[in-house]
């Protein structure tokens, strides 16, 4: 796997684009099996996700949390770390944002909303710091620890939402957050909210950190070659922890957005694997912030259009899962793509 790419050149776009095209072709076979014309099915898929301003808004809304988790995973990748814990990080971020959101009802919006967002980021950052520190100090593999931290996050939030912060209704959820803490809807009747603006800001910030600051220089150096980084006076341990903290803080914003912008409250186990989808988004986006954006939009579009396809044609929405799985498979098998779409070869 090529986890480390420095820029989004046309060469780097070959594998992601080729994978998407191949996945759609494989998907077409399944459409045929379902007894539907692939062209019809894909037209519905496209029109319903990009065909109108409203459908574009829905697509962007679906893409927003994936941008956050994708960025988070990509950031850790740049430091050579595989953060499988975005799911847990977004849960603790979500519950922290919800707790601040249902408390402090008398605060003005300019304070309450940033406070809720900051609480979520802090929780996600701390959650990711634990496997970061274990990796940096003891060499324990971060994949194991981030996975285990996911389970801790599930059960911790289960407890909080059914115990101390259980809302007034029967369901396992908190009360509604105060309007002063909500990310407002910006395109009714869709659920697109100002979280998308936060996502764009996050893309820019991540890009600037990675390529315009000395911190990014150090983090990428550790990711490429820890031995040379150490020789260059860069603390490998410190940068690993820092990268995990930033990764977790960014990933947790997915949960924050879902709570403050979509559901308006924390609901037990609300996430449809947004954190794990983030790994796929990062992979498809070649760990580049801009690539992550387009990958997230694609995945958002597939979910939006998939639901419509299910309604309007004989193709079940599970086709989307097949297409997504195929994309990941082809991205991982990048050598296959290079051979199927040969460019002029270098000697």
């Amino acid at each position: 796997m090529e986890l480390q790419q420095s820029s989004l050149s046309s060469r780097n776009l070959l594998v992601p684009l080729g994978s998407v095209i191949l996945a759609l072709l494989v998907g077409a076979v399944f459409v045929l099996i379902a007894g539907e014309n692939p062209i019809t099915a894909y037209r519905v898929l496209f029109v319903e996700s990009f065909g109108s301003v409203r459908s574009i808004a829905t697509t962007l809304q679906r893409a927003t949390p994936l941008i956050f988790t994708g960025l988070g995973v990509a950031f850790a990748f740049r430091c050579g770390l595989f953060n499988i814990g975005a799911e847990g990080q977004l849960y603790v971020g979500a519950i922290a944002a919800a707790i601040v959101g249902v408390s402090f009802g008398d605060l003005p919006r300019v304070i309450h909303l940033p406070m809720a967002v900051a609480a979520g980021m802090a929780a996600g950052g701390i959650w990711a710091a634990v496997p970061g520190i274990l990796k940096a100090k003891l060499g324990v593999h971060e994949v194991i620890n981030t996975i285990m931290m996911n389970f801790v996050a599930y059960y911790l939030t289960d407890f909080l939402v059914t115990g101390p912060f259980h809302g007034g209704r029967w369901a396992p959820e908190t009360d509604r957050v105060f309007p002063t803490a909500a990310l407002e809807r910006i395109f009714l009747p869709t659920r697109l909210n100002s979280g998308i603006i936060l996502a764009v800001v996050a893309i820019v910030v991540v890009y600037v950190i990675l390529w315009k600051t000395k911190t990014g220089y150090e983090i990428r150096a550790v990711g490429f070659n820890p031995g040379a980084a150490e020789y260059g006076g860069i603390s490998v341990a410190r940068n690993m922890v820092l990268a995990m903290v930033i990764s977790g803080a960014v990933a947790s914003l997915a949960g924050v957005e879902q709570v403050l912008g979509v559901h308006g409250r924390f609901i037990q186990r609300f996430s449809p694997d947004l954190g794990f989808m983030g790994i796929a988004v990062a992979l498809l986006g070649k760990n580049h912030p801009v690539g992550v954006f387009f990958a997230a939009v694609l995945f958002g579009a597939l979910r939006t259009g998939g639901a419509a396809m299910d309604r309007l044609t004989d193709v079940p929405r599970e086709l989307i899962v097949i297409i997504q799985a195929m994309i990941i498979m082809f991205v991982a098998a990048d050598e296959l793509i290079r051979r199927l779409f040969p460019k002029k070869r270098k000697g």
Partner: peptide, 15 residues
Amino acid sequence: YIPEDRHKRGLILEY
């Protein structure tokens, strides 16, 4: 310091 192994220590080859 000129390190013994330029690939392992001295350089970041992707930079």
